[in-house]
């Protein structure tokens, strides 16, 4: 009897797995997921504009904080700082001017290095007022913001994360009378 059974089993081929219902399920799921798939990644840069409040000041009141002012001119970027605890001489020392490297390319590496040094000295500083010139194109503005808002901990390894520099961005309009920062030394 057992011999017969064994013979019966050995003669029949194993049945193939019926994958057609799984295929049907996939055929329904794939179009549905295609509709909701994001093939491009849209992000945002949170910003604000300066609001006029006569009773308020943009200078931070904590002694360990400085507020950065970034003037983007057609030929250079100038960064100055404001603080309640530092003298004018000290503020002039930490200011910097970054002329274009070649042609119309910003010296963003130099600017970022400078901001990193300032951030190390005043780690609680977060606010930066940006004053671009009227003709600056949006892409260049975003590149400058990227350099000033954060920096990669390890440029070779993107998964190492980022450190904040001045992530709070406030836009304002450059009035020619305000540009008295040209005396600051050039930095490369």
């Amino acid at each position: 009897m057992f011999g017969k059974k064994r013979r019966f089993h050995s003669s029949s081929e194993p049945d193939d797995l019926n994958v057609i219902p799984v295929m049907n399920l996939f055929m329904v799921l794939i179009p549905f997921l295609l509709l909701g798939a994001a093939f491009y990644q849209v992000g945002v840069i949170p910003t604000s504009t300066a609001t006029h409040d006569p009773s308020a000041s943009d200078i931070p009141e904590t002694p360990t904080t400085v507020a950065a002012n970034l003037v983007i001119e057609p030929d250079a970027i100038t960064v100055t700082f404001a603080s309640t605890s530092l003298s004018e001489e000290e503020l002039a020392e930490i200011a910097g001017r970054f002329p274009h490297e070649s042609g119309e390319d910003f010296n963003l590496e130099g600017l970022q290095r400078h901001l990193r040094d300032i951030k190390e000295k005043y780690p609680q500083s977060t606010t930066m007022t940006v004053l671009p010139h009227d003709g600056l194109d949006y892409q260049s503005l975003v590149e400058v913001l990227d350099a000033c808002r954060e920096y990669p901990v390890d440029p070779e390894n993107p998964e190492a994360g980022h450190e904040e520099l001045f992530p709070v961005t406030v836009f304002s309009k450059l009035l020619r009378a305000e540009v008295e920062v040209a005396d600051t030394p050039d930095e490369n």
């Binding site: 491009y40 990644q41 849209v42 992000g43 945002v44 840069i45 949170p46 910003t47 604000s48 504009t49 609001t51 975003v142």
Partner: peptide, 8 residues
Amino acid sequence: SRYRLAIM
């Protein structure tokens, strides 16, 4: 007075 600039 607050904005989100859309970027790619």
